[in-house]
Each structure stands twice: as C-alpha cells, then as structure tokens.
Amino acid sequence: MEHYYSQDSRRQALYEWACAYVKTNTVYQPAALDVVSGDASFRRYFRLQHNAGSYIAVDAPPAKENSRPFVAIARALYAHGVPVPQVIAVDFDQGFMLLSDLGDTLLRPCLSAERVDALYQLAMRELLRIQSCPAPIDYALPPYDQTKLLSEMALFKDWFVAQYLGLTLSPEEIALLDQTCVQIAEQVVQQPTVFVHRDYHSRNLMVLDERTLGVIDFQDAVTGSITYDLVSLLRDAYVEWPAADVERWVEDFRQMLQQQGAIAQVSQAEFLAWFDWMGAQRHLKVVGIFARLSLRDGKHGYLQDIPLVFKYLLNEIKAYAELQDVYRWLCQRILPVYVAKHAQAQPFLHEHLT
C-alpha cells in the first residue's frame, strides 16, 4: 500500500496538517496516510490511520476545487440525519479537509440480483430524507433551472458529437437538437422542486450496515426536479437492471412520495413520464461529460460507460411522439458513426441501429 512518504508535496502537507489536528484535538496517535481514491474531479481522498480508527483526509486544491459548498452541504445533510461524512476539520485556504470515515463498502459491488431490491429500497428511503433536507444556512443551493439544464445538454453536441465523433452538423441538425433540448428542459422544470444530490448512484453510496447506506459526493447539490436523483439511482451509468424492475422501483418511489405528502396525486404513467424526460436530460449530459473527461482530462475509462448511457437515452425518448424526430436522427446519423469508432457499443445499441 502506498504511504505518505511519496514524493508529493500536497500529500505531505495534507498529512502534516491532519496530524497536527489529531495530535492537538484527540488522544489518538496518527500513523499512515493511505490512498483511498481520486474521482472525476481534482479531489483526492486518503485514509489517516490512528490507534483508535481512521479519518478521511481530502486534498482539494483551492485553484481547482471550491470546498465551501461541500462543507456547507455536508453539515446541512448531517444535521438532517442523512448518513454523510461528518466534517471534523477544514482549511479552505489550503484546500484540506478531515472527515469521518464511512469505510470502503460501496453499494455497487453489493448489488447482486438477490440483494438489489432491499438495497434500492434503502437508497430510495434515504433519498426521501435528502429531498426533505432544508437548504444550508451558509450556502445558497444553485437552482437547477432551464438555463442550467440546457447548458448541460449542450455537452452532448459540443463534446460527444463534435469533438469525440468529429462530426460537423448542418444548421438543420443543430436546430433539431437544440429544439429537442428546449422541449426536454421545459418538461423537466414543471416537476416539483426538491433538494437534489445530483450524483446519487451506486458509486456514491456506501453500505454501512444492513439497514443504513452512507452518502458521499454531494458537493454539486442543487434545488431541482424531484425525479433527478431517482434517475441517477435506477438508471445508473455503471449497472443496468431489467426495465420491468426499474419501472417497479419508480412506482415504489411514487407511492413513498405520496404517502409522505411530498407530491400531489400524480398517476403512475405521469410519474414515469417525468422520470423518462428527466432521464433524457441527464443522459444527454452524461454522454457529453464522459467524452469530455476523456478528451480534456485524460480519464479514458469513462468511454466504456457511454454505451449503456446512450442506450438509456434512446429508450427514454423512443416512446414519446414529441421526440420521434430526434430519435430517428440519433439512430440514423449518430449511432453508425459511434459504433464504427467504438465497436464495444454494438451489443448495447443494436436494437436502435437501422
């Protein structure tokens, strides 16, 4: 295991800062600083071992990452009873944080066919708690409004189509795609608005015990549509479930919301349509983000996750009359170019290839 004596000045500085806190504020003796993970941002996570357990030490370079939203949101969620890491100490100037340790058991590897239903029920119940969380007192959650939704969907055209596939679209094609994005955004903003985690999926949930899931990576939280996090959870970019199971879970969540009085009477079909339109927005964005992570940031592993996300997108728009033109265009113009470039996508997308 890699330890703190690596030739890394920020890591060494983080280690010294964290040790100073531990020595001053606890009876524990710090030991090693071990790598936990990086993520799609510039943050890095380390485990600081001490003789009574461990903390998580976070390196978030201030020039690249603003830690204030993370801290404000973490404290709001923690106060609301959501199992998020407790903020033990923070130095905004250096970009260092010390958090309580939720362990190493991500939800993703625990999602077997036998356990998934029980685990998703836990995840949906935790999501209800998140959605009812009061806004942080020292940070205004950004609105997930039409402008933001449109700017995110533009990533598909700008990064996936233009830069990754190298396609130059005609004015008519650009108009079709732009008009579709406006349609989607207009539908989505009509949904009830709640506290949105914004990346609520199997790699950002931790199994703490049989009855509790921990929640991480919430620093991009916003106020937005009530189905956004549900899409992230049930149409996860990293694991696929049968459509019938997903629809059953969507219905379970609708009933949970209605039992809590969180939504007015909304039919099963209408709520599923909310879910699909929100999914179309998210998946246009995510395909673009995954292409950007590869092209701009050198994180090429995300390219392997595009086929499933693209499949979700096509399945979501296929059923709606208003989206038939863009569905046909994607199948005829974009898919053949994509599959020619990324042959591994063929099994995911074969039913949509004309």
Rank of each mutant, 00 (worst) to 15 (best):
L230W: 02
F290Y: 14
V231K: 03
L167E: 10
V287N: 13
Y238T: 08
V82H: 00
P109L: 05
R129L: 13
A74Y: 03
W329M: 13
P347S: 09
N315H: 15
R10F: 06
A18D: 04
V36F: 14
A63Q: 05
S112W: 05
Y228P: 00
S100G: 15
E173Y: 10
A237D: 04
F218V: 02
D199R: 00
V35N: 05
M124H: 12
L257H: 03
R248E: 09
D117Q: 14
W274M: 04
V215M: 07
T105N: 14
C331I: 00
P347W: 07
L257D: 02
R44T: 11
L119S: 04
I174S: 13
L77C: 08
R47L: 11
G298Y: 04
L169P: 11
A345Q: 04
Y78Q: 13
L308M: 12
L330V: 10
S232L: 13
V182G: 04
K148R: 15
N66I: 01
M124W: 12
A118V: 07
D59T: 06
L308D: 00
R68T: 03
R125I: 06
A135N: 00
A264C: 10
A175N: 10
A76P: 12
A237M: 06
L14G: 07
C331K: 12
L284Q: 04
A113K: 14
I216V: 14
L230Y: 01
L141M: 00
I334Q: 04
I317M: 15
N51F: 09
D305W: 13
S6E: 13
V22M: 10
A74V: 06
L230K: 07
S54F: 08
G298S: 12
G81C: 10
A89K: 08
A185M: 02
G214T: 07
A20H: 09
P83V: 03
Y238S: 03
A57H: 10
V196G: 01
F92Y: 15
V250M: 09
W17M: 06
V339R: 05
T26C: 00
L167A: 10
L165E: 09
M97I: 05
S37C: 12
L155D: 11
F46A: 13
S170G: 08
R235Y: 06
K23P: 03
A162I: 06
C331H: 01
M256W: 13
A291C: 04
A118Y: 11
V182S: 04
I73N: 00
R235Q: 13
A32E: 15
I56E: 12
S267R: 05
Q332M: 08
R125A: 15
A185W: 01
L106M: 10
Q344S: 14
R43L: 06
L303A: 11
V287I: 15
A273M: 11
C19P: 11
P136N: 03
Y238G: 12
Y302D: 03
S37F: 10
L155E: 09
V82Q: 02
T24D: 08
L98I: 14
L165T: 07
S170E: 14
V22T: 15
V239I: 15
I216W: 00
M153G: 03
A343T: 15
T354N: 12
Q260L: 12
L106Q: 06
V87S: 06
W159Y: 11
